[in-house]
């Protein structure tokens, strides 16, 4: 196959031979699978908007139009909604800091060749690949009151009497969720940052070494600025993932004690599929959607700004 197309014009002018279909048609025919995505995302979004403006309760056939009443109730009178948002943001914030710091430190420590790199990357791939449901279950096994293998080990090390009951304490239950998510996703952050570090040009470091720069200076003035783009991308991926945190919470703490670990996704799920308040839940999910889109747009702007430099 020679790649010399010489001075011929672009592919758009060459007629393909399927029944005389030109590229102009083929390109759109190939896009047809996107209809499925439109059907599953755009239509539901509009439908959610419609539902959120009605009083839509389970199987009750009357669904009167109530305007923005659902939204008003959510924003002014629903403590659990605010609670869900705050808990989601707390878990998100702590997780992001932990995972970025741990992931970056590990990536810096292990950049370049080293003994056991293969072992580390393989083992590190395991948490990323297993289902968050299993991670949540494992966290429960590790921290369940009286029996958890991590909880009891901690109690034994610190000689706590009575032992710390992680899952019935609002603070420590959040720690359990955070530990579970950090356990699962720090490897992911590490792997991406590692390949990011590997792609950095070497020359500036050699120059810095000649100039007698310390390792810290090299990190601060060379590595960090060059890694800004990739760090932001990882932050975006993980941040948006954490905004929809659901599986781990359901399996590890079951949102408890009380609503101490009830993330916004869990609360909306409860509204819709436990209390069958579809209209109200749709309004809540619409607000969540707006938050996510605003956060994502801001971050993507920042990324765009960085990558243009």
């Amino acid at each position: 196959m020679s790649s010399s197309s010489g001075g011929l014009s672009g592919p758009n002018n060459i007629r393909s031979r399927v029944g005389g279909l030109s590229d102009r048609h083929v390109r759109w025919l190939l896009m047809l699978p996107l209809l499925l995505l439109v059907f599953m995302s755009l239509y539901p979004t509009l439908s959610a908007l419609y539902m959120s403006l009605h009083q839509w309760e389970g199987a009750i056939p009357e669904r009167p139009f109530i305007g923005l009443e659902n939204y008003e109730r959510l924003l002014t009178a629903d403590e659990r909604f605010g609670n869900g948002m705050v808990i989601t943001l707390i878990i998100l914030g702590v997780n992001l800091i932990l995972q970025m710091v741990l992931g970056l430190s590990l990536a810096l420590l292990f950049s370049g060749e080293f003994w056991g790199k293969k072992v580390l990357t393989t083992v590190f791939l395991i948490p990323v690949m297993i289902s968050p449901v299993v991670v949540g279950f494992t966290a429960r096994m590790a921290f369940v009151n009286e029996f958890g293998f991590v909880a009891e080990t901690v109690n034994w090390i610190f000689q706590l009497e009575p032992g710390l009951a992680w899952l019935s304490d609002p603070f420590w239950a959040k720690v359990v969720v955070i530990v579970a998510d950090t356990w699962q996703w720090t490897p992911f952050v590490f792997l991406i940052l590692l390949s990011g570090l590997a792609s950095l040009p070497q020359e500036p470091y050699e120059a810095a070494q000649v100039d007698g720069a310390s390792a810290w200076q090299a990190f601060w003035h060379l590595t960090l600025p060059q890694m800004r783009y990739i760090l932001l991308v990882v932050l975006l991926i993980r941040g948006l993932d954490l905004l929809k945190l659901f599986d781990v919470v359901m399996l590890s703490t079951a949102a408890g004690p009380g609503t101490a670990t009830e993330t916004i996704s869990v609360y909306i799920y409860q509204l819709a599929f436990r209390y069958w308040s579809f209209g109200y839940a749709a309004a809540a999910s619409f607000l969540l959607l707006i938050v996510v889109i605003v956060v994502a747009t801001l971050l993507i702007r920042m990324i765009g700004g960085v990558s243009e430099e």
Binding site: M40, P44, T45, L243, K244, A272, A281, F286, L288
Partner: peptide, 15 residues
Amino acid sequence: KFLPPIAFAIPIATM
């Protein structure tokens, strides 16, 4: 890919 699935789950379940 990044939008929260719970937002789609409710209308899709109804549909």
